[in-house]
Simulated scan of single mutants.
Amino acid sequence: MANKDALQTHLFLSCMLLAAVTQVTASAKVPAVIIFGDSTVDSGNNNVIETVLKSNFEPYGRDFYGGRPTGRFCNGRLATDFISEAFGLTPTVPAYLDPAYSIKDFAVGVCFASAGTGLDNATSDVLSVIPLWTELVYFREYIQRLARYMGKARAQRTIKEALYLVSIGTNDFLENYYLLPGRRLQFTIEQYEDYLLGIAGDFLTEIYRHGARKISFTGLSPIGCLPLERTLNIIGGGGCIEEYNQVAARFNAKLAALVQRLRAELPGLRLVSAQVYDLFADIYRNPSSHGFESAENGCCSTGLFEMGYLCDKRSPFTCADANKYVFWDAFHPTEKMNRILADHSLQTVLAEFL
């Protein structure tokens, strides 16, 4: 009898523990994924604006569902798509400006990002893309639309519990500071880093004021090792531009400090920094350990300088299997690399939100 009572007690406690774990897991889930940033996360907003920076044509999207180009700068899905799916939400996060989607779709996932943009408004001017602050205008509009769709109270809960993914900054350096003279005449490189992080702080504070609490801001990769930058590094024999990598590493350290400061200043803010620099650096050093054959050039065309319209489906050089490559074009990761990036974030900084 005692053994029976003990067994019943054990089963009861086990069920209670399972219920508690299930409840915690369910309460930790996020109701929506909301995305800001540049081409690393743009799912098609640039399709509908007047800019030369587009990717809504083949061979982009050749490994996406149905082999369809969507405006993602990739052969398939983005890291943000995989993250959304991991949270039990949509496996592809739609672009806010895509007329094929409605507020019903956006209620569980929405992307405001624009390829070619940056923290600095001057960066978005280079290729006439959407400035970060216009992405914020769209976000405010989205909040109003969401309230009309599901009611104000439910919309407020969605905005508060949603996961916000921000990926931006590379273009500020490679497309703006190092390419054009304007900002170099105004700032030293370290001053420009501080200028950008000041904008990042203002932006994060603003979306916090609109209700955002769970935010991940992705740090920079070793930007001097992108295929395009290697191609331009003629003097360095096609190797990585270490000066750019040092800038990225320093920017990331300052970003980490900004994250800590904002967490201390803004009550309830759960801001994290998704650091991908070391992951990329490790893959560059030993691509085969991650299942890649090439980390120096992209799959599309020669993979040395092509992206956007230069990534031509008629190129005889485009690789047959993008899974062997870290990069799809000369600037953007393949779907396989995006999955690795998503898994890395989910296992590290995003784990607390799962």
Score class of each variant (00 low, 15 high):
residue 214 K to Q: 13
residue 267 P to C: 03
residue 1 M to S: 14
residue 114 S to V: 01
residue 79 A to S: 09
residue 239 G to L: 02
residue 8 Q to K: 15
residue 252 N to T: 02
residue 147 A to E: 15
residue 74 C to I: 01
residue 323 N to L: 02
residue 337 M to P: 02
residue 329 D to R: 04
residue 68 R to D: 06
residue 181 P to M: 07
residue 179 L to N: 13
residue 102 S to Q: 03
residue 299 C to S: 05
residue 80 T to V: 14
residue 156 Q to I: 05
residue 293 E to H: 10
residue 331 F to N: 08
residue 312 D to T: 09
residue 256 A to Y: 06
residue 150 M to T: 13
residue 43 S to Y: 01
residue 207 I to H: 01
residue 339 R to E: 13
residue 238 G to H: 09
residue 148 R to N: 15
residue 226 L to R: 12
residue 97 L to Q: 10
residue 281 A to I: 00
residue 202 D to L: 12
residue 102 S to N: 06
residue 21 V to H: 10
residue 261 R to P: 06
residue 294 S to V: 15
residue 112 F to I: 05
residue 60 Y to L: 07
residue 246 Q to S: 12
residue 269 L to R: 04
residue 227 P to R: 15
residue 89 L to Y: 01
residue 181 P to I: 04
residue 259 V to N: 08
residue 64 F to R: 05
residue 281 A to K: 10
residue 215 I to V: 15
residue 144 Q to W: 05
residue 267 P to S: 02
residue 70 T to M: 07
residue 111 C to L: 01
residue 160 K to M: 10
residue 75 N to I: 09
residue 279 L to T: 01
residue 334 T to P: 04
residue 323 N to K: 12
residue 283 I to L: 02
residue 234 I to N: 07
residue 19 A to G: 13
residue 276 V to T: 14
residue 131 P to H: 04
residue 242 E to L: 12
residue 294 S to G: 07
residue 46 N to V: 01
residue 157 R to D: 14
residue 324 K to V: 04
residue 287 P to C: 02
residue 298 G to T: 10
residue 323 N to C: 03
residue 315 S to W: 01
residue 118 G to D: 11
residue 168 I to S: 00
residue 182 G to T: 13
residue 172 D to N: 12
residue 161 E to N: 15
residue 328 W to C: 08
residue 230 R to C: 11
residue 296 E to R: 10
residue 308 G to K: 02
residue 209 R to F: 03
residue 219 G to L: 00
residue 297 N to D: 07
residue 83 I to G: 00
residue 105 D to T: 02
residue 211 G to E: 08
residue 108 V to P: 05
residue 151 G to K: 12
residue 246 Q to L: 11
residue 320 A to N: 09
residue 227 P to M: 14
residue 4 K to G: 03
residue 55 S to D: 07
residue 346 L to K: 13
residue 246 Q to Y: 05
residue 203 F to C: 10
residue 302 T to P: 05
residue 87 F to A: 02
residue 243 E to F: 11
residue 228 L to T: 11
residue 289 S to C: 08
residue 164 Y to V: 06
residue 292 F to W: 08
residue 229 E to V: 13
residue 139 F to T: 06
residue 316 P to H: 07
residue 328 W to T: 07
